[in-house]
Amino acid sequence: MTADIDLDNVRLKLGNAEFHFHRHIDAGSFVAVTGPSGSGKTTLFNLIAGFVAPDTGAVRIGQAIMNDTPPAARPVSLIFQDHNLFAHLNVFKNVALGIHPALRLKGEDRARIDVALEEVGLAGFGERMPGSLSGGERQRVAFARALVRKRPVLLLDEPFASLDPHLRVEMGALLTKLHRREGATILIITHEPAEAERLANYTIRIENGRIAG
């Protein structure tokens, strides 16, 4: 399951900041997004995920124009640096919310959740609460949820920034494995050149609200 992303002369003004994005990203590619803070990386993600709408231009995902599509209806999964899990719900429910937003599950859904947790190395963690997990384990749960959601585009906003270097490598390897199997289009914001090199097919660099390279 995959889709290409097309940013067709997308322009946006937020306060004093102006953004202009024009780029096509092939289906199934794994792209690292870098750039100084405040340059517009997160705004780029917000445009793709639907948390802000462009003033002019078009955002297309898999050929369909997304400008007026609300976030939930876009074929996109999101993972942030932290707070990816609701702290008062257990791991199983946090993953299950990726299948149905009111937790109405069918019989086979439970099995899917168990499989996803096993994929990310957390078999048997279903009843645990997020507070009892390590930072890396919490991000694994977020990966498991992205797995069961099966959206063609996955956006990761500095997902490993709060993890130690050893764990970053391990989580990166897990992400690569999942990408190879699922084939989704992945965009990952990272400040680590080595990480971008290791994981992504190529890197796009954002400067002053534009894609610089």
Binding site: A49, P71, A72, R74, F80, H83, L89, L97, P101, A102
Partner: peptide
Amino acid sequence: PPQYWRLSVSLGMGSWQIFRFVEWPAILR
């Protein structure tokens, strides 16, 4: 955390589901 609001909408929750799964547990505490 403000991420909760982005997350819940991107998971497709409406206001009622956000109340039930996010706000109510916080209020209950």
